[in-house]
Amino acid sequence: MNMWFLGTGAGRPFKHRNVTAIALQLPEPGCNWWLFDAGEATQHQVLRTPLKLNKLEAVFITHLHGDHFYGLPGLLSSRSFDGGVTPVQLFGPPGLKSYIDTVFALSGTQLDYELNISEIAVDEGIILNDERFTVEAGLLEHRVPCFGYRITEHDQPGKLLVHKLQELGIEAGPIYGQLKQGQTVTLPDGKVVRSEDVTGTSQRGRVVTVLGDTKPCGRALKLAADADLLVHEATFAAGMEEKAHEFGHSTTAEAAETAARAKAKRLVMTHFSGRYSNEDLSRLEEEASVKFGAVTAATDLYMTEIKR
């Protein structure tokens, strides 16, 4: 899995930094991708990456502040022009469906694919659970209802040990697939074969946490617990906690402290105030690293691999 930071700014775009949007590129074989927030001009940023709109599978909006979703209608519309015909799932706070329906109605926009919109309740937990991932949403502490998302990849069965199957006299066919999927199989002679007896060590699923705008809070810690990658806003530098909290934000030091307390493996900070240039980011990294070592301050179009 790869994560692309399409926009890393707070509030409004700047010459060196666009507003918030993050893409999670899913593993093979599908190689589809999910989008977290869609600030203004997100579709322009997508054009600067290998990502294709027709491969977009789901969109998760953290909250209804313009720098996090003003780019959504144009992006969804352009997906039709880019050959997108498969369904897209859209998740976000209450009011998101009304916004999209109104914009599309006034502009006469017609999509060539099915758009399924799910508005998240305040006490929501798991919002998506398919054969690959579980996604949990949790309410954070911001000026408007704002959610963080915890994406958990399901554990993957180990590699099928073909030589053991051959020793059991099992020829290649449907049984191989059943055992690979973790099922227990009864052979025609009555012998029971368990998946764990003919597969290697299973692969632990990865955990990625993407938090929306937030002050430090208990829900952020819960969503980020033991994450392989935590994405946390760091609107202000350390020492500016009072100003950050006034607007429902966090500082670099607070993002690092959340990562440390949650025992995350890596932290990527984003959503930087326009007062900081890209040249300032190394200083912001340094002050966060006092509390958490594995930290990166993202720039626009920064890509990181999420390894097992």
Rank of each mutant, 00 (worst) to 15 (best):
Y149N: 00
G108E: 02
L223M: 02
L111F: 04
I151T: 02
A137R: 04
A23P: 06
A227S: 10
R79N: 10
G274K: 08
G158F: 06
K15N: 14
V208R: 06
G71H: 06
L160S: 00
A58Y: 11
S195V: 00
Q25M: 11
Q183W: 10
A224K: 05
R308I: 09
L221K: 03
K265H: 12
P73C: 02
R150K: 11
K215E: 08
M1H: 11
A23M: 06
R12Q: 13
E114A: 10
L72T: 01
T258A: 10
T186H: 08
F147A: 13
N54C: 08
N54Q: 14
H142Y: 11
T299L: 03
G92V: 07
G11Y: 03
L221S: 00
G218V: 08
L140R: 00
A260R: 13
E257I: 12
V290Q: 04
E167Q: 13
T199Q: 14
E285T: 01
E114S: 12
R204M: 13
L51Q: 02
Y113T: 07
T296N: 01
R132T: 13
S77I: 12
L221H: 01
A260V: 03
A255Y: 00
T152E: 11
A220I: 05
G173H: 03
R266G: 04
L284A: 00
E119T: 07
I126S: 12
E287W: 07
S77M: 15
A172D: 09
E28C: 07
E233R: 13
P174E: 13
G190E: 00
S77A: 15
V185H: 00
E171W: 05
R17G: 04
G200Q: 07
A259S: 04
R308K: 11
P27G: 03
T152Y: 02
P29H: 07
P188C: 06
L187K: 05
E131V: 09
L223G: 01
A220P: 03
D228S: 12
A224G: 06
G66E: 15
F91W: 12
G138E: 07
L64T: 11
G182Y: 05
A21V: 01
M303D: 11
T270G: 03
T102C: 05
S77G: 12
P73H: 02
T184V: 09
E124Y: 09
T209C: 05
C31N: 15
T199F: 09
M240L: 10
Q181M: 12
Y302S: 13
V295G: 00
T251I: 04
D189S: 10
F236N: 04
H163G: 08
E136I: 12
L128Q: 07
L35M: 03
V207F: 05
T299I: 07
M269L: 09
G71Y: 07
